[in-house]
Amino acid sequence: MIQLEHYLYLSGLVFTLGLCGVMMRRNVILVLMGVEIMLNAANLALIAFNKYMLPIDGIVEPKGQVFVFFTIAVAAAEVAVALVIAVALFRRLDTVNVDDVANLRW
């Protein structure tokens, strides 16, 4: 019997893997992919919560699914802007290594 906990542990594991990728990879594009994986893991948790939600007045509204719909739309917008920033970075500095882009660090 699959329970809510199974989905939450799976989601947490994938989120942690994405976090590891964001911290360990040095390529800007791979860092972005890690962020996408973390968003996706959160989506899985939202949909699992939606299915196991207690009904209010006998009905369960698909709130989690609609929330995931919005998350995906926002992720699409975010990826478009972030990838353009990566391209602009490459044009200007000729690198996509995050260690070489430390102008704002003190």
Partner: peptide, 8 residues
Amino acid sequence: AVDPVRAN
């Protein structure tokens, strides 16, 4: 807040 076993 959630039904751990399921299933409505």
